[in-house]
Computed example of a mutant assay.
Amino acid sequence: MKKLIFLWVFALVSCSSSKFDKVNGVSFVSSGEEAAQHHIDPVLKVSANYAAIMPFGFIRDMDAPELVFNSDHQWYGERREGVKQYIEKLHQNGVSVMVKPQIWIFRGAFTGNMKMPSEEDWKRLESSYEEFILLYAQLAEETQSDIFCIGTELKTFVNERPQFWNDLIQKVRAIYTGKVTYAANWDEYAGTPFWSELDYVGVNAYFPLCEKETPTIETLTEGWQPWKTKMREIAEQVDRPILFTEFGYRSMDFTGKKPWLVDRNQMDVNLKAQADATQVIFDEFWGEDWFAGGFVWKWFMQHDQVGGHEDNRFTPQNKPAESVIRKQYSQVKKSSL
């Protein structure tokens, strides 16, 4: 009888593992100050087991080859010393980390369209970018961070310079022993050429789902189906799980129409649309064995001062979507019973 009970429990846990054994992450936004315990406590309160830490490098124009990073002119949390302090503070609290260096182009121009005007400029960019990435790959190894992301939404750079990226992956692997991914934009990932060299197919999951002002659960679910089918096919083709390196929705009308919008529009606040869209993404993906989890975009350190019921931006903080995230992420703890 005891043996039968054991086998039943084992089967139950095995069947549930794909649902619970996930990256339940937040994208932890850099700040001008050190991370203190009161900054980490809200992350723990939503039961996140991962945080993405994002040091930035800055480029003046779409065709400028010089990347400025780890500079005294940057915020503390955007520099190496701040990134290290954030990681160590999160690790002290049992939160795993993905180190995710990113480029910011002046005035927020889209990094996917960045293109150099000459071979000389491409080589200058490559040299600068490699230095940027390897600096943080070394830090990721030093701090024993679990995942390292080699780039974010750099479609043209990837397509125009494939040999550079193949070489970069090998150089990262030579100094970093954890898992490696790349954060491809939702309309880029299917053509990204080097997934078999990485550990995850990283996707920034801002897929358009519907054009309704306040989409229903059913409409959002239906909107996901073709995208979900394609991601499953890619995961099977390259034999790598999908990881949502970013996912999330703005708390505004038409949130499922163009989820990637970062403009400061005056669209009416719609808290229900954000909460429902967040719930659907959990319902559709967190139970799939080819899916590794993801990082909510985005989570600010000053929890009490951000988000709220008048905010139409991405953060779920102090909104109904935060409760949706907490309910989902807290389930991971039940799997250890």
Score class of each variant (00 low, 15 high):
249 Y>V: 00
129 Y>Q: 01
7 L>Y: 13
197 E>D: 04
262 V>M: 12
288 E>C: 15
142 E>Y: 05
4 L>H: 08
74 Q>Y: 05
57 G>D: 05
212 K>L: 05
6 F>V: 13
10 F>Y: 12
67 L>C: 14
24 N>H: 10
246 E>K: 02
48 A>G: 12
68 V>Q: 10
12 L>K: 09
66 E>S: 09
160 E>H: 12
231 M>A: 11
45 K>Q: 14
235 A>D: 10
181 T>Q: 14
292 A>Y: 04
302 Q>C: 02
70 N>Y: 03
6 F>K: 11
273 A>F: 09
250 R>H: 01
250 R>V: 05
127 S>R: 10
250 R>W: 03
320 P>M: 10
315 T>I: 09
213 E>S: 06
299 W>A: 09
236 E>I: 08
102 Q>T: 04
165 W>Q: 04
222 E>A: 04
58 F>I: 02
269 V>P: 06
46 V>M: 07
237 Q>L: 02
199 D>F: 04
32 G>Y: 06
276 D>L: 13
164 F>D: 07
105 I>A: 07
44 L>H: 01
113 N>Q: 01
267 M>N: 12
65 P>W: 14
200 Y>L: 09
294 G>Y: 05
202 G>K: 08
166 N>T: 11
192 T>M: 14
332 V>H: 03
264 R>C: 01
52 A>W: 00
46 V>Y: 00
273 A>H: 10
61 D>E: 10
26 V>N: 00
229 T>L: 12
110 F>V: 06
149 C>F: 06
129 Y>N: 01
92 Q>A: 13
332 V>L: 08
202 G>W: 02
151 G>V: 06
223 G>L: 04
311 D>R: 03
303 H>A: 12
102 Q>L: 10
126 E>K: 11
229 T>G: 02
57 G>K: 08
236 E>N: 15
258 K>G: 01
81 E>I: 15
200 Y>A: 04
122 W>F: 14
73 H>W: 12
302 Q>R: 14
330 S>I: 02
109 A>T: 08
126 E>L: 00
178 G>Y: 10
18 S>K: 14
112 G>M: 00
251 S>R: 00
59 I>D: 06
